[in-house]
Simulated scan of single mutants.
Amino acid sequence: MRSFLLIVWLITFAFGSCTATPTSNAAPVDHSAWDKLLKKHVNDKGFVNYTAFKKDYEELKKYLDMLSTSAPNDKWSKEEQLTYWINAYNAFTIQLILDNYPGISSIKDIGSKIKIPFVNTPWDVKFIKIGGQKMDLNNIEHGIIRKKFDEPRIHFALVCAAKSCPPLRNEAYVADRLNAQLDEQARDFINDKTKNNITKDKATLSKIMSWYGGDFTKQMPIVDWVNKYSSVKITKNTNLDYMDYNWELNGK
């Protein structure tokens, strides 16, 4: 599975990197509508009440429609742009789940239902429209966020609706607190023993740290990333291993 996902991501990154980044003349976005929905339907552990969220589908759609017509431009700060794309990725992921819920136990169940040529996973479905462009989740993550922003901490913030992924924050990301929010996400994720089990002798890490290892090591070694956020410190001699990934839906 690990090697399959790596191949899929490399392929989608190659195609996603060719996607022109959407833009508009809009002012920076107010994410308060998304914030309200998250506070209402996501608990402090990042688990989502999808049944209740579905009742607010129209409110979610209003927020997504606003994102669709308000793509970032170069007048926005880097923090405003990155905040937009993180919130967009997570909100559109919620839409994808709700469009297929109930009846799924994992986001990957959606992929098994897809009968579209050249579309093999839920991350390849072009159900997103931003700035007049049809996009998929891979376009946002690989073609825009990873390509444009040198920020490995996004891997602690982007959510794939699975129990092994980082928790969905129950507040929107906002530009003026983005750095602190990303640090908090990293700290919570690294110290969650269901996702990273760390002792001074052995660190069994999330596969995210392996799949996206190159993003992290461009800035510093994995050991240093762990020590930056973990309450238990390791050394270069600590044995590193990686957990199996639990794709079960992060519902409650």
Score class of each variant (00 low, 15 high):
residue 3 S to V: 10
residue 6 L to T: 11
residue 10 L to Q: 14
residue 14 A to N: 13
residue 19 T to L: 10
residue 29 V to T: 13
residue 30 D to W: 08
residue 35 D to Y: 08
residue 38 L to M: 12
residue 41 H to E: 05
residue 42 V to Q: 04
residue 44 D to I: 00
residue 45 K to G: 04
residue 45 K to I: 03
residue 45 K to L: 07
residue 52 A to L: 09
residue 55 K to V: 05
residue 56 D to I: 06
residue 61 K to D: 14
residue 64 L to N: 08
residue 76 W to I: 11
residue 77 S to A: 11
residue 78 K to C: 10
residue 79 E to T: 09
residue 80 E to G: 09
residue 80 E to Y: 05
residue 81 Q to W: 05
residue 82 L to G: 02
residue 87 N to A: 13
residue 89 Y to S: 05
residue 89 Y to N: 06
residue 96 L to N: 11
residue 98 L to G: 10
residue 107 I to S: 02
residue 109 D to T: 10
residue 111 G to N: 13
residue 116 I to H: 05
residue 117 P to K: 08
residue 119 V to Y: 01
residue 122 P to D: 04
residue 123 W to N: 09
residue 126 K to Q: 13
residue 128 I to F: 03
residue 134 K to G: 14
residue 137 L to D: 01
residue 143 G to F: 02
residue 146 R to E: 04
residue 146 R to A: 03
residue 151 E to Q: 14
residue 152 P to C: 06
residue 157 A to F: 11
residue 157 A to V: 12
residue 177 R to Y: 08
residue 179 N to Y: 15
residue 180 A to V: 10
residue 183 D to Q: 01
residue 184 E to P: 10
residue 186 A to Q: 01
residue 188 D to G: 00
residue 189 F to G: 03
residue 190 I to F: 02
residue 192 D to I: 07
residue 193 K to E: 10
residue 193 K to T: 13
residue 197 N to W: 00
residue 198 I to M: 01
residue 202 K to R: 11
residue 205 L to G: 01
residue 207 K to H: 04
residue 208 I to T: 11
residue 209 M to R: 00
residue 222 I to D: 05
residue 222 I to S: 07
residue 226 V to G: 01
residue 236 K to I: 00
residue 244 D to W: 02
residue 246 N to Q: 03
